[in-house]
Design a binder for these strands. Structure first.
Length: 517
RNA sequence: GCACCGAUUGUAUAGUGGUUAGUAUCGAAGCCUGCCACGUUUCGGAGCCGGGUUCGAAUCCCGGUCGGUGCACCA
């Protein structure tokens, strides 16, 4: 199968099997970059989010939730009002849109010495022409990358948040009190953010409304360097591709242990390194394979306005190539410093190491695009196998992420006792919060294939012997093998499989030896 | 937003200036079926939107919309 075929096939299956629909609304003229999750997509994203929450909680993060709307001053303080504008200029001849700053930069203007308000004057003064067609350039206009809306009566303009992180920072005085002034403070937030992307593309990878999951550590400069949890992970190896390696044109890079990264001064703060590792664990936790993960350090010109150091966790997308899914930022004291400046609230400071000193806490941030992570977890899981010239489609998701990990089938509809027993088992599983599907339509083989295509890991089949011996077969998606287990252990076994407390391999097969003929 | 390419049942496709728009798959209801997309019966479902040419347009032309790819932006 060519990769082009594979791409369109995967996209087709995502929609066809009820994972992702869109762009939405499909029956009217859709808005680019907006999607619906269908029944299975929603189940799967719920599971993925639960998994992320679990990992955050294990690592002592607490979850908060903040509003999507906030007054403009918040975004002035955060720097977004200033930085989230693109200055664009349109060619009057060929209508190509150019960014004023990149245009001037390409002509070797010293960007440090130019104010954004001067872009238009310079272009006019120096008679700068369109680089594509030599045509005359029009006026420089602003393109706001933040989404605004109206609120209240009379309506006033508000900004929809372009990131969740800043809204979390506004809570610092409250959190500092909640955690009884113990630093560092670990919190995270999952929720929507909005950006006027110029051109949404590539399914869930670039949309105008998107979900983020951002973890924050409020920490003192001393704690960043003396961070006990780091010791537990110091020997782990991560695929770190440093800015220096990128700048020297090296496309090959080697995994390094985290201790080495610090020794070689690729990274300096143990707390920050620990956070990079957390990003890695989360991505592994939702089923992305290590060979498809790398960390890429931002080069100095790439860094966001708030970042001291920035690394992206990138995933090698099967459909779209290496793509950022998580940014890990050392934001320094930029954010709380700015909010202190704009709000004048002294509670944004904490006592420093010397007596009477007040300091602004440092912030380390880990920022995931949830939609992206969801999309990658899904796209990487499609497996196409050939079985006797018939293609077998398997959605090979981790059991914790799979929308519906279990299925219950009566081998046939006759006799009705098979159906009764199957439905009883199905109800038992549901009553025990084990996500299960029941199906009795068509042949048993058809049902196995139909359900493994949407990620069902284990199927329980009730056959005629089940009525006599109290056992059913469990079929494994991996290799289509089967074992026989007792019905009375079925709920317990399912729960253990779901929570990783046992594996299919460890299940004892009670299939009776074949009878002598 | 620009450039190029595309649009027929849910999916994949066939074909035609006048057709009951074909096929496979799919879905529904049966029959059959003792473990891997079996078979079988019946049924269901389609030419993106707007305008033009024409006696007649799903088919030709123009415009729009949406999608794909490339450029700029980005979690």
């Amino acid at each position: 199968m060519s990769s082009e075929d594979e791409t369109s096939k995967i996209l087709m299956l995502m929609a066809h099997r009820g994972f992702i629909y869109g762009p939405s609304p499909e029956i009217y003229n859709p808005i680019k970059g907006s999607f619906e999750l269908g029944p299975l997509g929603k189940l799967m994203k719920n599971n993925l989010e639960s998994k992320i929450r679990k990992i955050f909680r294990k690592n002592s993060f607490w979850e908060v939730q903040c509003p999507l709307i906030s007054p403009e001053i918040v975004w002035k303080a955060s720097g977004h009002v200033e930085r989230f504008f693109d200055y664009i200029v349109e060619c009057t001849k060929c209508n190509t849109i150019h960014r004023a700053d990149t245009l001037l930069e390409s002509l070797n203007y010293d960007m440090g010495g130019i104010k954004t308000s001067e872009f238009g004057d310079i272009i006019q003064r120096d008679n700068i022409r369109c680089p594509d067609c030599e045509g005359e350039l029009g006026k420089v206009t602003q393109q706001n990358l933040m989404v605004t809306s109206q609120l209240g009566f009379p309506a006033a303009e508000f900004i929809l948040r372009p990131e969740t992180a800043t809204t979390t920072y506004l809570l610092f005085p409250r959190l500092h009190q909640f955690f009884r002034t113990n630093m560092p403070i670990f919190v995270f937030q999952m929720g929507y953010a909005f950006r006027n992307e110029i051109s949404p593309r590539k399914m869930l990878l670039r949309t105008r409304e998107f979900e983020q999951c951002e973890g924050q550590i409020f920490i003192t400069p001393e704690q960043e360097l003396d961070f006990a949890p780091f010791e537990e992970i110091a020997k782990k190896q991560l695929p770190l591709w440093s800015a220096t390696e990128q700048e020297s044109g090296k496309t090959q890079f080697t995994s390094k242990t985290l201790a080495t990264a610090i020794e070689k001064k690729i990274l300096d703060k143990p707390a920050y390194v620990w956070l990079i590792n957390l990003a890695y664990e989360i991505v592994l936790g939702v089923g992305i394979l290590p060979e498809n993960i790398r960390f890429r350090q931002h080069k100095s010109d790439e860094k966001a306005h708030y970042a001291h150091d920035a690394w992206d966790l990138e995933i090698n997308s099967r459909l779209y190539g290496w793509t950022e899914v998580c940014g890990i930022h050392d934001r320094g004291d930029y954010d709380l410093g700015r909010h202190l400046e704009y709000s004048k609230k002294n509670k944004l400071q904490i006592p420093g190491s010397t007596k009477g000193e007040k300091i602004v806490p440092q912030i380390l941030e880990i920022a995931f695009g949830v939609g992206r992570l969801f999309f990658f977890a899904l796209e990487q899981s499609f497996r196409f196998e050939n079985e006797m010239d018939v293609e077998r489609v398997v959605l090979d998701l981790p059991v914790e992420i799979a929308p519906i990990p279990f299925a219950v089938f009566p081998l046939q509809k006759k006799p009705p006792e098979l159906v009764h027993l199957a439905k009883k088992i199905f109800n038992d599983l549901i009553d025990n919060d084990i996500s299960t599907i029941y199906d009795d339509a068509g042949s048993i083989g058809k049902r196995y294939r139909r359900t493994e295509e949407v990620g069902v890991r284990y199927a329980f089949t009730i056959d005629h012997d089940s009525l006599e011996d109290g056992m059913v077969t469990i079929r494994n998606i991996e290799d289509m093998s089967q074992k026989r287990i007792r019905i009375k252990n079925l709920v317990d076994t399912s729960r253990k499989l779901l929570h990783g407390q046992t594996t299919y391999k460890k299940i004892k097969d009670l299939t009776p030896p074949p009878k002598e003929v």
